[in-house]
Nucleic acid binder design. Sequence first.
DNA 1: TATTGTTATACTCTATAACTATA
DNA 2: TATAGTTATAGAGTATAACAATA
Lengths: 164, 164
Amino acid sequence: MTATAAQTRPRKRSGNGTARPADADEIGLDALVGHAGYAVRRFQIWIFQDFIRTLGDVDIRPTQYSVLTVIGANPGLSQMAVAKRLGIERARLVHLLDSLEQRKYVKRVKSKADRRSHALHLTSQGETALAKFKRLAAEHERHVEDRIGKENREQLLRILAGFT
Amino acid sequence: MTATAAQTRPRKRSGNGTARPADADEIGLDALVGHAGYAVRRFQIWIFQDFIRTLGDVDIRPTQYSVLTVIGANPGLSQMAVAKRLGIERARLVHLLDSLEQRKYVKRVKSKADRRSHALHLTSQGETALAKFKRLAAEHERHVEDRIGKENREQLLRILAGFT
DNA sequence: TATTGTTATACTCTATAACTATA
DNA sequence: TATAGTTATAGAGTATAACAATA
């Protein structure tokens, strides 16, 4: 348990009494091993790196992908709605959309109902591009499956379903 | 599946033909639902926020906690060794240690064996403080358990054990 | 030549605050 | 007054490059 691990003594290294530094894989993590947050963080880094690599040719990062996907599935949403749904700061979404609009994937249409807000839509270019991004993202997902196993991936999605 | 979800049409909102904007919880995530990375990312944000809140009084963040824990369990490590083990850039570790050293939790001792490197140790203040941090971190871990369930947390740790 | 710690730069992301134009 | 979008700033975190001291 994490609580009792607090009393763990530093473990001996090498056992040969030399001053030789420990190899990376013989360094103990102590209490960290019992923390879900540590494992989740390391996994998340791995998974994002694979996503970025797999979608490297099309230069789309996870956050951009999530924005395009949500707009694609819910055309006409306001920026506030997208920001809230994805847990992104509305100030940050502004820049994300600037970039996606420059690349002609998204357009901001002035809403007639509420002239303060923009209705977000994919351009036809955006629709075509998103279809390709989704194919690449599915490929990335297969890498995840290869890494942790089909069953484990499904279990993971089930356990974390409440956070989406 | 994520692959077939690429063909999903935008789902109807409200079904009443009005221009009323969709509520946050009726906005579909489409392909995102099938991505482990999205769920993991949202979960990781939740878990870090709880960690930061739970250890708010002692002003220790997850990365600082991981550095202190590893030094505590492996006294005498070099900065390179700590950086490698935790997957932190060595340039970044410099600043983390500056702060932890200012707060008298850690000391850098010039290594006799290799005069380029520093041997890292907790101060006695640091040892005492870390014991307290570990108790608070264990409390945070119980929050995780409350949120996702004891079984699920253990399953998660098992699935992600390879990433630590 | 290579490595350790350091400094510096740039870019991403999170968290705020404040401004404008609307409502 | 409150909200949507915008601009700006500050602090984490990530990714590099370059430098001095040492190996």
